[in-house]
């Protein structure tokens, strides 16, 4: 089950590992992506800290850490081919994986219905 932030990130939890990406809605708003910069593996992120950057032709946008944790893996395919994030933002276009500092933090994020209501 996916959880969401009001900053348009999604999170998928497996054990204490959270996969993070940008939502389909955000991807649609940004348009074609031409550059993706991901955090270094090993970085410790606070909740809400700038974690990644996605850039369209016209603008750069920060992607914030939805939860606190350590970056354990990044999606090198997304960096090499930014269009992948636009084509499949909630699948193959994931950005990075976090080992959560506190799994119960996930409860503070939005569920799908709450996020859907936010972007209407």
């Amino acid at each position: 089950m996916l959880r969401f932030t009001d900053e348009h990130e999604w999170v998928k939890l497996e054990g204490d590992i959270a996969t993070v990406g940008i939502t389909s809605h955000a991807s649609g708003q940004l348009g074609d992506l031409v550059f993706v910069e991901l955090p270094k593996v090993g970085t410790t992120l606070k909740k809400g800290a700038p974690a990644a950057v996605v850039e369209s032709v016209k603008a750069a946008s920060d992607v914030y850490a939805p939860l606190a944790g350590d970056v354990i893996e990044i999606n090198a395919d997304a960096e090499a081919n930014p269009a992948l994030v636009g084509e499949d933002p909630q699948g193959a276009g994931w950005l990075y994986k976090l080992r959560l500092a506190n799994v119960s933090d996930l409860d503070h994020l939005l569920d799908e219905a709450a996020y859907a209501a936010l972007i209407v």
Partner: peptide
Amino acid sequence: MSGEEAVP
């Protein structure tokens, strides 16, 4: 995430 409209 956040961004700004970079249309000058």
